[in-house]
Structure formats: structure tokens, C-alpha cells
């Protein structure tokens, strides 16, 4: 495997949406998710000298992000963190109800079930995307999620349009197979 070098200048364009999706499915707070992504990049930059080039940039950044998410939960589960959560709840609400009860979702509501199912499906898909070769994953995300035009992606990756469609086609086939085993056959 050729040694991989870090290119921090491209991190935001290449990985921020992927990391953001990964984070939001775990912390459920867009502002916190953005902060965690930002902190991940900064921590990555700080510890860049420790990167040995044995994994891809994305895998390495995800491992940093996972630690950041664990730290976030540790903080919010500490006494001080719980107090901060309660304070922010009271600031945003003029009601005196049981805040914990209000935060719990009503599972009998079918819309909530749909939402949960969609969330789980999204997580399964994210895992499948993570299992793709990095080049495939980046190009698939840029075309399908970021909706970038073909020309822009081809220029960035220095490939022809037909190469791009072959890559997207292969990525989709792998994702369909992966979802089939991880999601549809799980019941």
C-alpha cells in the first residue's frame, strides 16, 4: 500500500459533510456536531506528526472524531455537564414541565418510528459508504449527496466523465449489496 500523506487544506471540502453526518447521527445536535467536526480537524492538525500513513486520511480523522464524541458524552454525563444541559433547556423554554420527560420521544407515534427507521437506515448507509474504497466514497458522495456537477468532480480527481460513471456505478452496486446484507436482511 503506498504511503498516504495528509492534505489538511482539502479536509473541509473532502470530509466535512461525511464527518458531520457521522456525528449528527450520534449527538443529535447540529451545532454540537459542527463544533466536533471543527475540533476533529484541529486535533488532526495538531497530531499530524503522529500519522504514519498506514490508514487513509478519512479513517484517521474518523478515529479522532470518535474520541471527540466519547469526550463529549463524558462531559455531558458529568455533574457539571448535566447542569449545563438543564440550564440550556430552561433558557430555551418558559415551561416548568419535567424536561427529561419532554425530551423522550413518543414511540407510539408512527411518524417517530419512521424517523427512527430512516435514521437507522442512514447510519447503515454511512457504514456502507465507509467500507467503500476512499476514492469511490468521495466521488459517490460528491455526485449523489453534494450534487456537484460531473465536470467539477472530473477536474478535481483528474478523471474522464466515463471513468466517473464507472466509479459511481461500482460504488452504487457495492452499496446496494451492502445495504441488502446489513439492512434489509437484518429482520
Amino acid at each position: 500500500m503506498p504511503e498516504i500523506k495528509l492534505i489538511p487544506e482539502k479536509w473541509v471540502d473532502r470530509y466535512s459533510d461525511y464527518l458531520f453526518n457521522f456525528t449528527i447521527s450520534r449527538v443529535n445536535d447540529p451545532i454540537m456536531a459542527q463544533d466536533l467536526v471543527s475540533e476533529t480537524f484541529l486535533a488532526g492538525l495538531k497530531s499530524a506528526h503522529r500519522f504514519k500513513g498506514q490508514s487513509t486520511e478519512r479513517t484517521w480523522l474518523i478515529s479522532i472524531l470518535k474520541r471527540k464524541i466519547i469526550d463529549h458524552y463524558r462531559k455531558s454525563n458529568s455533574k457539571k455537564g448535566k447542569a449545563e444541559v438543564r440550564m440550556s433547556y430552561l433558557e430555551n423554554s418558559d415551561q416548568n414541565g419535567d424536561w427529561m420527560e419532554e425530551q423522550v420521544r413518543d414511540l407510539r407515534n408512527p411518524n417517530v418510528e419512521d424517523e427512527i427507521e430512516q435514521k437507522e437506515l442512514g447510519e447503515a448507509l454511512n457504514k456502507c459508504i465507509a467500507a467503500l474504497p476512499e476514492r469511490y466514497a468521495t466521488i459517490f458522495v460528491q455526485k449523489t449527496i453534494d450534487k456537484l456537477d460531473t465536470e467539477t468532480i472530473c477536474k478535481e480527481h483528474d478523471i474522464t466523465a466515463s471513468n466517473l460513471w464507472v466509479i459511481i456505478h461500482r460504488a452504487r452496486v457495492q452499496l446496494m449489496d451492502c445495504l441488502n446484507t446489513k439492512w434489509y436482511k437484518k429482520d
Binding site: 473541509v12 466535512s16 453526518n21 459542527q34 467536526v37 471543527s38 480537524f41 484541529l42 453534494d146
Partner: peptide
């Protein structure tokens, strides 16, 4: 699935922080 994405201003803000750190 309704993908969640960072907006351009959010990305720019992260880029600025990263640039400053670099």
C-alpha cells in the same frame, strides 16, 4: 434520507479556524 450537510458559511468558518491553526 434527507442528508444533512454543512452549509458553505459553516464550512468557511471551519476552514478559517483550520487556516489560522496552520
Amino acid at each position: 434520507l434527507g442528508w444533512v450537510k454543512l452549509s458553505n458559511p459553516q464550512k468557511n468558518s471551519i476552514k478559517e479556524k483550520l487556516k489560522a491553526a496552520m
